[in-house]
Simulated scan of single mutants.
Amino acid sequence: MERFVNRGQNKRSCTNDARSPQKRMKLESDERIKEEEEEDGILAEFSHPVPWQKIEAEGLDCDYALLFSKEEADHLFKQLEEEVVYSTGEEAKVQVFGKVYNIPRKQATYGDAGLTYTYSGVTRLASPWTPTLEYIRDAVTNTTGHTFNFVLINRYKDGQDHMGEHRDDERELDPLCPIASVSLGAARDFVFRHRDARGKQTRRQIEPVKLELAHGSMLLMNSPTNTFWYHSLPVRKKITLPRINLTFRRILVDRKK
């Protein structure tokens, strides 16, 4: 994944310069050093040397990388444990085929002021960004080049907490923006299954794609992944530690209206 930075060129005057050649050479040398320092600053701000791993299959396009070091990921996890307020009561339920169930994990929604997100028959209002969520969001933006205005947070207390197969394909999501999934805490298996290879009467034999999402990692789900592939986080009884997952999205405000 590459980022291109337009480097501006200093325009020099065409008027006669009465200064000595040695003086001009020194000034020009100083200007070149200043330009190089400015360019280095731009590159340091807008590009992160993240080694990406490409994950591809028919209709599946993902990028995977370690976004944070273990030390930074540990700190971010601790901060989120202190800052994030999870849903309770009716907001902690989900509707599936007309039936209401308790969500087998904790959930929270944060984002820009006034944003709502509707999924599984429930509409959720975004709480204001916390400092830690803003920091993670900006790190994701600086690394991917995409901006996000909403995040869905799932907290899994251990391997018993899970998420069933689904697609993030709600019409209010910007189809041109990938979904960036940041994982903190216990490493968990993540499974993609093609829509034509689900259920007892599968139409095609397509192998699932299985990943392990590590502490401090980011999975970028690019288009058209969520059109053709379902994803899940299955039960893993041997996992005893918690995990926090943050899926950054861009909601189209005009489409919601």
Rank of each mutant, 00 (worst) to 15 (best):
R137I: 11
D138S: 12
D138Q: 12
A139K: 11
V140H: 10
T141F: 12
N142Q: 06
N142D: 14
N142R: 11
N142P: 05
T143S: 13
T143Q: 10
T144G: 05
T144Q: 09
T144M: 05
G145F: 11
G145W: 15
H146A: 01
T147S: 07
F148V: 01
V151S: 00
V151H: 00
V151W: 05
I153C: 03
I153A: 00
N154T: 09
Y156E: 01
Y156T: 06
D158C: 02
D158P: 05
D158Q: 09
D161L: 02
H162N: 15
H162D: 14
H162R: 09
M163W: 07
M163S: 13
G164T: 06
G164H: 11
E165G: 07
E165P: 09
E165T: 03
D168Q: 02
D169W: 00
D169E: 15
E170F: 01
R171G: 08
D174A: 06
P175I: 04
P175R: 06
P175V: 02
L176N: 15
C177P: 13
C177N: 13
P178C: 01
P178V: 00
I179W: 08
I179C: 08
I179Y: 11
I179V: 05
S181T: 06
S181F: 04
V182P: 00
V182N: 07
V182M: 05
V182F: 04
S183C: 13
S183K: 02
L184V: 12
L184C: 06
G185T: 09
A186T: 09
A186M: 03
A186D: 02
A187W: 02
A187Q: 11
A187H: 07
R188L: 07
D189S: 14
D189P: 03
F190L: 03
F190D: 12
F190R: 02
V191Y: 02
V191D: 14
R193I: 14
R193H: 04
R193D: 10
R193A: 15
H194F: 06
H194I: 03
R195W: 11
D196Q: 10
A197W: 02
R198Q: 05
R198A: 13
G199M: 11
K200A: 15
Q201R: 10
T202Y: 04
R203N: 01
R204K: 10
R204L: 14
Q205A: 14
E207A: 15
E207T: 14
P208Q: 07
P208C: 09
V209D: 09
V209M: 12
V209K: 13
K210F: 00
E212L: 06
L213V: 08
L213T: 09
H215V: 12
G216T: 10
S217L: 10
S217Q: 08
S217M: 05
L220K: 04
L220V: 08
S223A: 12
S223F: 04
P224W: 09
T225D: 13
N226Y: 02
N226T: 04
